[in-house]
Design a binder for these strands. Structure first.
Lengths: 203, 203
DNA sequence: AATTATTTAAACCATTTGGTTAAATTATTT
DNA sequence: AAATAATTTAACCAAATGGTTTAAATAATT
């Protein structure tokens, strides 16, 4: 975390993250956060002025975790399919650590889409880089011709969606067997990569 | 809609759907719904007793729309790949009509996962049927060996996720070009189907 | 020991929330 | 015309919300 924060602030932020991730901005109350962090509301106001300020900090961190800086994987000197495997594996691994983030980010992003503007500028993420690389691989004949936009969105969908849809998938398909669902998520690291590779392999 | 409701009730339900889909349960207020439907809070209480009652009705309808009764497609006497194309096309078409539903359902499902139990029982949706069919196709050698659970989740991911992630994808990848994103969603009907088919084709 | 920073407890405030009620009004039906 | 149903207006309520303040207590630093 940002070392600008002292220990108590980190404690509060951790509680805020937990509560916000669980209940969302509208569903969370400052009292929940105070209770969760073991302090009182007055101290929240002492360090952070408002609920919004606190949320801002939590959301920023979650967002940068959701769109992680995994682009360096694609700059490595390895086979393109190996890059796919590495990216999918690292992405799903990251989400396994914070499985609540996808749904949280998606919901809050809808609640305040304008926040995107700030984030696009603050975080140096550039999808154009990936899109251009996809085009290059198609041009070199390494992969079958495919719209790079669809390929990018397909990759994100396959990685992220099962985390956002956990209550649905776990309840519906795995009959609330939490362990089975967890194992399923882990196995997706391989399964999704091979699924994508097979779909874009030149035939 | 259910014909049990009279005109005014339908008017209220429509407004409730609009407000709940936009702001979620926590973000919505009964006053919003009253204003949106052009009536007053007292009449809300006259027809529906509480916010929860109203929400229940809206959520049920949204959920059954999200997991649509498209299984009959798979019972048709057509090539399996044609079934895939028909299913993906019909599913994305359904979501294009109600693009807010995925994120709404996912978020509310997390807010109250126990509601799943009711819904599983009330709606007659059985994923086992699809899973078994996938296994059958693998057995017949029509498609390459693949874990049916992953195939099912992959299909759902590719269809649903772009709708849930609209603010992110439209803002990030399409630089807030709403028309371009809309066109992208439509083109996914073909793109996703072919992507899946290529990924499961026996080689 | 004196000073400063941190933390708590408790009360307070204006606003909003979901929900309720009573009375009047309008529309519909009989 | 009479009776019933639908709708509005307006006020009300208790509870919860985010936020603020004051005063005291505790800890850390000088």
């Amino acid at each position: 975390m940002n070392p600008n924060y002292n220990e108590t602030e980190l404690q509060i932020l951790e509680a805020a993250r937990k509560v916000f991730l669980q209940y969302g901005f509208d569903g969370a109350t400052t009292q929940m956060i105070a209770t969760e962090s073991g302090i009182n509301k007055a101290l929240l106001h002492y360090y952070f002025r408002s609920k919004d300020r606190l949320f801002e900090a939590v959301f920023m961190e979650a967002f940068t975790r959701m769109i992680p800086n995994l682009l360096k994987i694609f700059t490595a000197e390895i086979d393109f399919f190996e890059k796919i495997r590495a990216f999918v594996g690292a992405y799903i691994d990251a989400l396994l650590q914070y499985p609540q983030i996808p749904l949280f980010v998606l919901h809050e992003l809808k609640r305040n889409p304008d926040r995107i503007v700030q984030l696009i500028k603050s975080s140096g993420i550039r999808p154009e880089f990936i899109l251009e690389m996809f085009r290059g691989e198609v041009g070199k004949g390494n992969i079958a011709p495919i719209d790079p936009y669809h390929l990018l969105v397909n990759m994100l969908s396959l990685c992220i969606f099962p985390f956002a849809a956990k209550p649905m998938i776990q309840g519906f398909i795995f009959h609330n067997d939490e362990a089975a669902f967890q194992e399923f998520l882990v196995s997706r690291k391989e399964q999704v990569a091979e699924f994508i590779i097979k779909a874009i392999k030149p035939c």
